[in-house]
Amino acid sequence: MLGTDIQKPPKGKWHTPPFDPRFPNQNQTRNCYQNFLDYHRCLKRMNRRGKSTQPCEYYFRVYHSLCPISWVQRWNQQIKEGTFAGKI
């Protein structure tokens, strides 16, 4: 499974996403999307190598903070249906 079922943020200390030099502008759309992609890519690689997916939590927290809830729901739905446009 690609982790679409996990909806609650993991426990532990967490600050809001810090400044990201890749996205210095007012437009933060890609910042949200890239972190969503990175989370799912990370999960896929870690699962394939049989490693812990704990390092992927960072991406989860970033996209969870940045992306509107409706976007995440839509993307998760698309992943489930196999119609997600991003390369995971």
């Binding site: 909806q7 609650k8 943020p9 967490w14 969870h64 903070s65 509107p68 809830i69």
Partner: peptide, 18 residues
């Protein structure tokens, strides 16, 4: 996050809880 709707605003605090 603040989302505009026709015709109200909705606010999302998802840093810690949903």
């Amino acid at each position: 996050k603040t989302m505009g709707h026709q015709w109200f605003w909705s606010y999302e605090y998802t840093d810690y809880e949903d």
